[in-house]
Nucleic acid binder design. Structure first.
Length: 728
DNA sequence: GTGTTGAGTATTTTT
DNA sequence: TACTCAACAC
């Protein structure tokens, strides 16, 4: 029997709401996920809904899996197949019906790395280099153009191009070319990027009434989590999937947690929803179960500085709890050192495990200085979203081989592996084939498989290619009746992949990853009871989280961006880099971006259950090459809500020093410091090349400094930028 | 054709 | 630091 007694009054009302459109506005930590999963269970158990006809949209694949497991455990092992992100849902729909819009359903989905390698290829063919425009920036423009349906070719003035971040006519011309080539390439190779999944699903459902009807009858009930981060296109797709007679839709969200406006989300979507579904019943959850009063005070105080919001204050029955700590260090080294010290003391008498601790930051690059300190102190940690599992080189190689076996004309995969491991098919050979393909108006893959023709020039390049084609042929027949896992093992053997890996850096880790990959394939095959490579490839094309199982059991500190942390909670939370220019980011361009930055901070703060640390440092920033200042968000929070910790004098070991020095000093603009630092004998200094040293004598503007072997004593100019005095 | 080296540069957020 | 790319040696 479904347990409803654990729910509070408001939660229960939402869970047992009648049919028809529902909106649940749920603040952070108010049991949003519990309400959503219990609602699904309730639909099946009490309202007689078919578990196969319920669609639940989540924001990440990770959240989807969690929800599925929770429902499975709640109502006697019932499996709900349609739980997934907008992208995953659209993918499944397109796989079934894409032929209605004139495309074949053997498409594959490409990730951002694939996109970039296509762009690099286009650059090469078009004679462009990254000096013309960084491929990454070009990709940004391409995505923006695609998502906003901008007619790039119609843009002829720099005034209009400005909105795309383009300020030169050359750039505009180049990006037009690259954009056209990119989309042409995707179409001819039958590839879809992430945006295509949404756009084509929308096209399919909006243009074909019979298909729309089919899916509307397919889903009796639709639920959406994290509704505040739904964008207009996704909302339109949702509306096309909702059966407009019954309007059985249940959305849950918190406008204060909208942190994806850069991807088209908009806080006003709640208003749009209420207009679209006028009979909507609204439920509000504001009793927070997660955090202590002190943490909520900080969160409420911060978010109250946003003007563009509906007033809402989180309350809790939890105790006052610990003070929220604010720490200001003299450098990023001090900041990281403070954090590791806290972690050491928090975990010393087992009051907390490493896995209770999360370190959050605004941007990925900020993790580095903390990582260094965690390593120095032997604290186990895991960085989420750093290099995603399926984007690892070794995994992508093997996946490319798999793809090639199912579809030998897959140009992207072919190009990726034709010289991995190296087999003498280098750039010159590839250029030859490309030229032949262009001259004869055939694809690269077609030209490649035509190598045995008599006019192939130069002939000495032939054997390597022919051997490779034979390899692929033999692998195709060899893997014919094998499972996917067996096929991958056969591939590894046939190409001697292990030897190749051993010649690379991080060989051990890569071999472990390969083991993990094979394990996950076996899991997939058992779970879905299939050996279809194509199904497997579709499954992993969207699965960007690194394998949860490998991390879950490890006792380690977690590091992640706040965006990534959405939907998670932890007993102890550190938010680092609370500096102007970092958080809020210097990259804000529109006026109300500051409100979004504040919401991001709000999301970070509300992840914490028991202890919260906000840290920053006022050293040099690699971005602004000037001294950092404290984030305005600290002022928003109010110093009365914080306990301030003072920067300590830290004895610096040699290991720390070499890292600290090389990192800090490079940021000076000139070779010499403007102000001459007054040294005295005995000061410890850091030098970019020589490492740590001690001042042994001073002669005018020169210093004699004793460095460790092999450098010995050196005479240096006092204000040279390579020198920095350290606290001692 | 392959592999190494040194110079130059970079940093929002993700499905 | 870490990554990319052009230039050069083999």
């Amino acid at each position: 029997m479904l347990e409803l007694t654990k729910l509070n009054h408001h939660q229960l009302e939402a869970v047992t709401a009648p049919e028809g459109p529902i909106l649940v506005v749920a603040g952070a930590g108010t049991g949003k996920t519990r309400v959503l999963t219990t609602r699904i269970a309730y639909l099946i158990d009490h309202m007689g809904y078919d578990n196969n006809k319920i669609l639940a949209i989540t924001f990440t694949n990770k959240a989807a899996n969690e929800m599925r497991t929770r429902v499975f455990n709640m109502v006697n092992n019932v499996y709900v197949p349609w739980i997934g992100t907008y992208h995953a849902t659209c993918l499944k729909i397109l796989k079934e019906d894409i032929q209605y819009i004139g495309r074949k359903n053997n498409f594959s989905v490409i990730d951002d790395e694939d996109q970039l390698s296509i762009l690099r290829d286009i650059y090469k063919r078009g004679g462009l280099t990254q000096k013309d425009m960084k491929p990454k920036k070009a990709l940004e423009v391409i995505e923006k153009v695609k998502m906003n349906d901008i007619q790039l070719n119609a843009i002829n003035s720099l005034d209009k191009a400005k909105e795309l971040g383009i300020y030169k006519f050359d750039e505009l011309k180049n990006v037009k070319y690259v954009n056209q080539m990119y989309n042409q390439r995707l179409l001819s190779a039958n590839l879809l990027d992430f945006n295509d999944l949404l756009l084509l699903a929308y096209k399919l459902l909006s243009e074909h009434g019979e298909v729309r009807k089919k899916w509307q009858t397919m889903f009796d009930y639709i639920l959406v989590d994290e509704f505040q981060d739904t964008n207009e296109l996704q909302f339109n797709i949702l509306n096309l999937l909702i059966n407009q007679e019954k309007k059985n839709v249940f959305v849950v969200g918190d406008p204060d947690q909208t942190i994806y406006t850069w991807r088209g989300a908009y806080p006003n979507i709640f208003k749009d929803y209420l207009v679209e579904y006028k009979q909507t019943k609204t439920y509000v959850l504001d009793l927070n179960y997660r955090s202590s009063q002190n943490i909520l005070k900080v969160a409420n105080s911060l978010i109250s500085h946003n003007s563009d919001r509906i007033d809402k204050v989180l309350v809790t029955d939890n105790g006052e709890g610990n003070n929220v700590v604010f720490y200001k260090g003299d450098s990023d080294y001090h900041e990281s050192n403070f954090i590791t010290k806290q972690i050491v003391s928090l975990t010393k008498n087992k009051s907390y495990d490493y896995k209770d601790i999360v370190i959050l930051y605004r941007a990925k690059y900020l993790s580095r200085s903390v990582e260094q300190e965690l390593i120095n102190n032997n604290i186990p940690y895991y960085v989420f979203g750093a290099v995603r599992f399926y984007q690892r080189r070794e995994i992508k190689d093997l996946v490319a081989y798999l793809k090639l076996l199912t579809n030998p004309t897959d140009e992207l995969s072919l190009k990726r592996v034709l010289n991995v491991p190296t087999r003498g098919i280098g750039n010159t050979t590839m250029d030859n084939i490309t030229k032949y393909a262009n001259d004869n108006h055939i694809s690269f893959a077609e030209a490649f498989y035509l190598t045995n023709r008599s006019d192939f020039d130069p002939p000495w390049q032939k054997p390597a290619i022919i051997q490779f084609i034979k390899l692929i042929d033999s692998l195709i027949s060899l893997t014919k009746d094998k499972t996917i896992a067996e096929s991958v093992q056969l591939i590894i053997k046939a190409i001697n992949y292990e030897d190749h890996i051993k010649s690379l850096e991080l060989a051990e880790e890569r071999l472990e990853n390969i083991d993990e990959f094979i394990k996950s394939i076996t899991e997939f095959e058992t779970k879905h009871n299939t050996h279809s490579v194509e199904e497997f490839l579709h499954e992993i094309s969207l699965y960007t989280d690194s394998d949860d199982n490998t991390i879950k059991n490890k006792d380690a500190v977690s590091l992640m961006t706040i965006h990534y942390a959405k939907g998670t909670e932890a007993k102890v939370v550190f938010i680092i880099g609370m500096n102007e220019g970092i958080f809020p980011s210097i990259k804000m361009n529109r006026e109300n971006d500051i409100e979004e930055e504040r919401r991001i901070a709000y999301v970070g703060i509300t992840r914490s259950m028991e202890k919260l640390y906000l840290t920053c440092n006022v050293g040099f920033s690699p971005i602004s090459t000037s001294t950092l200042t404290v984030s305005r968000f600290i002022k928003d929070v109010g110093h009365k809500n914080l306990r301030e910790e003072i920067s300590e004098m830290i004895p610096i070991s040699d290991a720390d020093l070499s890292w600290y020095s090389s990192k800090e000093i490079k940021t000076f603009e000139d070779n010499y410091n403007e102000t001459v630092i007054e040294f005295k004998v005995g000061d410890t200094i850091a030098h970019t090349i020589f490492g740590s040293g001690v001042v042994i004598s001073i002669n005018g503007d020169m210093l004699d400094v004793a460095f460790k072997a092999p450098f010995g004593v050196k005479s240096l100019i006092k204000n040279h930028k390579a020198i920095k005095r350290l606290k001692n």
